[in-house]
Nucleic acid binder design. Structure first.
Length: 150
DNA sequence: GCCAACGTTGGC
DNA sequence: GCCAACGTTGGC
């Protein structure tokens, strides 16, 4: 099993939205490296749900992959902001996963707390200039994160 | 294939 | 609102 961190702006879609909807297709990722990570995610993988552009910034909960290799439907929808005219149903560009809500943390693990306990080598999200919206989390870091939230 | 211009992300 | 970082676009 692998661990990941996925970023979202909670004003658009936060952990509470996922809690309410129970499951969602993680659509709208339009960066090739992030897409490649999503393509390598497998059913059962755990994803840390990170809130950006909000106070407090940080990891707000957990979800898990319940379906892999999902074609992102928004790439075909001309009304979607994620529409990609260069993609086609015969040869889709953008793939993702379906995730299921697992847990909303009682307290967000803040960016400040992450910086106190981890180095940028431990956690990609702490690396300067990092803008990936999907990134792997090593098992050591993942287990330490899971221990932190209780 | 290079690279300047441009747009977006995201912390502050 | 600012701005550093960085991915993408498009002219050449």
């Amino acid at each position: 099993m692998n661990y990941w961190l996925i970023k979202s702006e909670p004003d658009v879609f936060g952990i509470e939205h996922l809690q309410r909807h129970h499951e969602t297709v993680w659509d709208g990722v339009r960066n090739y490296q992030a897409r490649n990570y999503l393509q390598s995610a497998r059913v059962g993988d755990v994803m840390f749900f990170y809130h950006s552009n909000i106070d407090p910034i940080g990891i707000a909960g957990l979800c898990k992959v319940v379906e892999g290799n999902v074609v992102d439907p928004s790439q075909f929808d001309p009304k979607s902001k994620y529409f990609d005219p260069k993609s086609s149903r015969a040869a889709p560009r953008w793939w993702t996963v379906r995730v299921q809500f697992v847990e909303k943390f009682a307290q967000v693990i803040t960016l400040e707390a992450l910086r106190q306990h981890f180095t940028p080598d431990d956690l990609v999200v702490l690396r300067k200039g990092n803008r990936l919206s999907v990134m792997p989390v090593g098992e050591d870091a993942a287990l330490r994160l899971l221990a932190m939230e209780r």
